[in-house]
């Protein structure tokens, strides 16, 4: 064991997802060159903004490690938000509304899983189609309008929206660390715990790394693969709740483009689209990178459309990086295996 701990620091650094370095470098550069980027207000709002994407990119990471992908997460964020808001709007108690919304997200994921596993539709296509279904339903259910939370009768939602710092230090605080951030941290910790300490994580890697071997080892691969999409559905629903809390309303377009950002974040975190390798902490850091880029560039006055261009380039670079990490630089080498 002693030998292990000696090695562990170097091992740890080696095992860090490559998004770590990008994050550290970007962060320092932005603090140095972009005025106001390093201010406490900005950092705390950056974390608040990134929270939702952290959850979505973790979900994406789970799907990607199995060799799949879930492009419906953005749609689920919109749809589940609308469902929760409609339930509250029809006078349902807010806790029940939230729970039903989460259950609905799981159900949506279950459908994804069944279509992928039992009907053998490629995950990319299946979840892409379901994304359309989700956006369409969200627009229908909300009549394409924003659904605002009522001011009264939703005590739990109000409680979840409080600023923790304000609650602890009541006198004139300008910083915000909201309960939403707390929810995010707890969700991610539970996910990582689940991943590390139960067979779930092992089987996820087995599904993506060598499905044939997993089958031969008596693992019910279909069941676990469906479960993956249920979990991404659940996580996307948690993200929907956070979105609802943050903007105090549900908008049928609130999830637009989030699946793209989640893929960018996951890929930056070393998640390899062919499956079998990648990590959740990597995807979380990837989400931080994405928001650092967005936040930093918009503070620097870059327009929002250009930021999308940059993120697109970042995605491609991330893929190249993963490819290099796996095979080393080898141009034109087309060996069989």
């Amino acid at each position: 064991m002693k030998k292990d701990s000696k090695r562990s620091l170097r091992e740890l650094i080696r095992l860090l997802p490559n998004s770590t370095y990008i994050f550290v470098v970007l962060f320092i550069a932005f603090v140095a060159f972009i005025p106001n980027f390093g201010s406490a207000t900005n950092i705390s709002s950056l974390i608040g903004q990134a929270a939702i994407l952290m959850i979505l990119s973790s979900a994406m990471s789970v799907a990607i490690i199995t060799g799949g992908i879930d492009l419906s997460v953005g749609g689920i964020v919109s749809l589940v938000g609308v469902v929760m808001a409609q339930l509250v709007g029809h006078g349902m108690n807010d806790v029940m509304s939230i729970l039903l919304g989460l259950a609905f997200g799981c159900l949506f994921g279950l459908v994804n899983g069944i279509v992928v596993v039992k009907l053998k539709v490629a995950p990319f296509i299946a979840t892409f189609g379901m994304q359309g279904v989700a956006y369409g339903l969200a627009n229908t259910l909300s009549d394409s309008r924003a659904l605002y939370m009522p001011d009264e009768g939703v005590p739990v939602i109000k409680a979840l929206q409080t600023n923790l710092l304000e609650w602890m230090f009541p006198s004139g605080n300008i910083l915000t660390i909201s309960v939403q951030v707390l929810i995010t941290i707890v969700t991610l910790m539970l996910l990582i715990l689940f991943f590390k300490k139960t067979v779930f994580g092992t089987y996820i890697y087995a599904l993506g790394g060598n499905r044939e071997a997993a089958k031969l080892s008596n693992i019910r691969t279909d069941k676990w693969n469906i479960m993956v999409y249920v979990i991404t559905g659940l996580l996307a629903s948690v993200a929907a709740l956070l979105m609802l809390l943050r903007i105090n309303s549900a908008q049928p377009t609130s999830g637009d483009g989030l699946e793209f950002q989640a893929v960018v974040a996951a890929v930056l975190g070393g998640n390899y689209l062919a499956g079998g390798r990648g990590s959740i902490p990597g995807a979380i850091l990837g989400a931080l990178v994405v928001y650092t880029v967005r936040n930093g560039l918009s503070l620097a006055g870059v327009n929002a459309n250009m930021i999308m261009v940059v993120l697109g380039i970042v995605l491609v670079l991330g893929m190249v990086m993963n490819e290099v990490a796996v095979r080393g630089l080898s141009f034109g080498d087309r060996r069989k295996k």
Binding site: V199, N210, E212, A213, A214, S217
Partner: peptide, 25 residues
Amino acid sequence: LNLIPELSIMKNIFLGNEKKKGIFD
């Protein structure tokens, strides 16, 4: 070979045959 490269030796040996304590490995 029928091993999962990204998993440890231990996890490969017990793949599909894990010993559990409650829900945890």
